[in-house]
Simulated assay, not measured.
Amino acid sequence: MTVARVLMTHMRTGALCAAGLLSACATVGPDYHRPAAAVIEKPSATAPFIGGNEAAFAALAPLPDHWWRLYRDPVLDRLVAQALAANTDLRVAAANIARAQSDVAIAEDGRRPQATVQASPGYAQRSAEEELLPGAALPSNFVYAASAGISYQVDLVGQVRRAIEAADADLAATRAAYDSVRVTVAADTTRAYLDACSAGREIGVAQRALDLQSRTTQLTRRLVRGGRGISLDATRSSAQEAQVRATMPGLLAAKQLALYRLATLAGRPPAGFDRDVAACTREPQLAQAIPIGDGAALLRRRPDVRRAEWELRAATARIGVATADLYPHISLGASVGSVGLAERVLGGIPTSFRWAR
């Protein structure tokens, strides 16, 4: 009987046995159910937002994935794209997704037959007492050992299914974590851009107010010198000018800080901020009403909420994995091999073959 024929015979036997056992299989451990006390299950979660009926908001429209494009500002689009490409936390999150996908593949392999092939040549001498021939002079020689086998674990109580369920939930949780980092990076970039443009506009307003107040102070002093005014008017105007001038350093610092944040988010040194943003003197305006949905839609799209729920789902599935260890494990398998002298490797000597099931 050839090696292939022996393997096929035992594989058929194992498959028939597995089919009979699988018909009686059950899955241990609890099934995941969203807690009844979860906020998303309450009627108030589907209620409209307070103030959501104002003209600036669109309550029924879904929020787009690239929500910052609602501004229709090419500079902002470029800044967000740069920040997403340069962010290290996003690369770590993407690597975690790849690892979780590998864990899913490993877990799914548990419900497939496993094949093994081994070969080991060597130079050895058998022990005479091991062969129950004490005192015999056994020769040293080159020997070999080769085997091939196949095995299948019967998922008797659903341990493999629970492991796959946990791995799938872990994968979904890592994807939610990636979405969370992506939302944070895009929001921080948009906020820094709006802060820089807002500070630029306020600096322009303050500079015009300072110029007007400085001109008023000069005119007031001329009136005082001409006898048409009193020194108190000049003092009051000078104090107002100093007050307006005192706001300038804070506005300049706020704009510079926003520019530094943008540079850092884009993976650049602070001095490498975008010069187009430095010249911005007006905040971008939304091209349409802001889509907000309702409370339930907000909870469904929040990545931190999704991540927490998927982690809870994975932990629930692992209860089943741990519970299954309390039950017997059944594996079906078969193997064939050949052991003998290296000079007659696979030479068809019947005494060199072995098999097991």
Rank of each mutant, 00 (worst) to 15 (best):
A137Q: 14
S127C: 05
D155T: 04
D109W: 03
Y327W: 12
V104A: 07
A253K: 10
G348H: 09
V154C: 02
R313D: 00
T220E: 10
S331Y: 07
T316R: 05
S237G: 07
P270A: 13
L232I: 09
L341T: 05
V117E: 00
L22F: 13
A56I: 11
D195S: 08
A81S: 09
T323Q: 12
R34D: 09
I230S: 13
S331P: 01
A186E: 02
L252D: 06
A163M: 06
H66P: 00
R301N: 04
A98T: 15
A24W: 11
I319P: 00
I150G: 06
I106K: 14
Q118L: 09
N53W: 15
C17M: 13
Y123V: 07
Q256P: 00
W68H: 04
Q285R: 10
V28W: 07
S238P: 01
A128E: 12
D103G: 12
G267T: 08
T27N: 03
A47R: 10
I319R: 04
G293V: 01
A94N: 06
W67E: 00
L232V: 15
T88A: 15
D211C: 02
L156V: 04
A145S: 15
G200C: 02
E343Y: 12
A177R: 01
L210H: 02
V336M: 04
R318F: 00
Q153F: 09
C25S: 15
A287F: 12
A314N: 03
V345E: 06
S237E: 14
G110N: 05
S23Y: 15
A95K: 07
N53K: 14
R182T: 10
A234T: 13
S331R: 14
T174V: 12
V244R: 01
A100Y: 06
D294L: 03
V224T: 04
A59L: 08
A334I: 05
S151D: 13
E283L: 08
T9W: 12
E41D: 11
R72G: 11
G200Y: 00
M1K: 04
V3P: 00
L286D: 01
P35F: 06
A199Y: 02
A105R: 13
Y123H: 07
S147R: 04
Q101A: 15
E130T: 14
A19L: 13
A115M: 14
E283N: 08
L223G: 00
R357E: 10
A196S: 02
A209S: 09
